[in-house]
Simulated assay, not measured.
Amino acid sequence: MAEPGSGSTEGAAGGKARFDDIYGRPDPRAYFTRLAPLEYEIPHHAQPVFRQVAAERTALDDARTPGPAVLDVCCSYGINAALLNHDVTLAEMYERYTSPGTRAMSTAELTASDKAFYAARRRPDAVPVFGLDVAAPAVRYALEVGLLDAAFSDDLERASPGPRLRRALAEVGLVTVTGGGSYITARTFTALLEGARRPVWVSAFVLRTVSYQPIARALAAHGLRTTVDASRTYPQRLFTDERERRYAITAVRALGRDPAGREESGRFHTLHYESRPETPGT
């Protein structure tokens, strides 16, 4: 989720700051410490949406069979999985991972603590969640502490899914995204849908600085119709500096959107796209 862990060192992609270094750590403390001052908040806004969509998608399947899995793309340390399946808020996660007590722990101690923390907060309506992110240390941690049921670091922008991911795709019924829209393309979604065996829905929060149309066209080629309420936006985070603000305003205007009250006010904003099969009931 969030800014995916691809790339090399921190830099800028088209004017947008990158935080690649925080995804290569063995645990999520650097992630939350770096993003806290920027008020990174999109997982908070996605939490109730993903819970609702996951429940709707699960209800379609025969109750006698295992329910469909959620695949969170660019999942990093499993933040969306934590918020989907556990009684925890993003604010509580920031407090947990930036507290002096947590900072003093070793990774092994934090891992053990997180296992107990999330197990105690597991919701009765929890659904299977798989995670996909090229940042292998991040997905390993999420898997180790029980946030993910399966974890994959396949780079679908560069290659086809490996054998493990291909097998897992047969179980996926919902794909979620909160931060990969700036980095992944239609290639990733095409690879995922080509491996699907169940009807797949896609629920994605994407920055207004990028066009979702190429991905929507790829989804349409697989029978999915994409809708968006362009009048409602969801704030992602503060800009790191004036350069990033100028980039965002320029990019939004280039797509025919109005940055007034949103990007001009100092934050990235996202749109929420829902893609579901054209055929009702699937």
Score class of each variant (00 low, 15 high):
Thr188Tyr: 04
Thr9Lys: 02
Arg267Thr: 07
Ser203Phe: 00
Ile42Val: 13
Ala55Val: 04
Arg158Leu: 15
Pro161Cys: 11
Ala159Glu: 05
Gly146Asn: 02
Glu194Lys: 15
Ala82Met: 04
Phe268Gln: 04
Thr226Asn: 08
Tyr31Pro: 00
Val49Asp: 03
Arg253Trp: 12
Ile42His: 11
Arg140Ala: 08
Val228Thr: 09
Leu143Asn: 02
Phe268Arg: 06
Asp87Leu: 11
Arg18Asp: 03
Met1Trp: 04
Val73Trp: 06
Pro163Thr: 12
Met93Gly: 03
Tyr97Gln: 00
Ala216Glu: 02
Arg140Asp: 10
Glu3Asn: 10
Ala186Pro: 06
Arg34Ser: 08
Glu144Gln: 01
Pro161Ser: 09
Pro43Leu: 04
Cys75Val: 09
Glu56Met: 10
Ala254Ile: 15
Gly5Tyr: 04
Ile215Val: 14
Glu244Thr: 09
Gln236Asp: 11
Leu219His: 01
Val228Gln: 08
Arg208Ile: 11
His272Lys: 09
Thr226Cys: 12
Arg198Glu: 13
Glu278Leu: 15
Glu95Gln: 13
Pro235Ser: 08
Ala218Thr: 11
Tyr273Glu: 12
Met1Gly: 07
Arg34Val: 05
Arg158Ala: 14
Ala248Cys: 13
Phe152Val: 08
Tyr212Phe: 15
Leu219Gln: 01
Val134Asn: 05
Ala81Met: 08
Gly24Trp: 11
His269Tyr: 14
Arg262His: 13
Glu274Gly: 11
Asp229Lys: 05
Val73Arg: 06
Asp21Arg: 03
Tyr273Pro: 02
Asp87Val: 07
Ala55Phe: 09
Arg25Gln: 09
Arg96Cys: 01
Cys75Glu: 04
Ala12Ser: 14
Pro4Ile: 15
Gly15Cys: 11
Gly195Ser: 09
Asp125Val: 02
Leu174Lys: 02
Gly24Thr: 04
Arg267Val: 05
Arg197Val: 05
Thr279Asn: 08
Val127Gly: 03
Gly11Lys: 05
Asp155Phe: 12
Gly131Tyr: 00
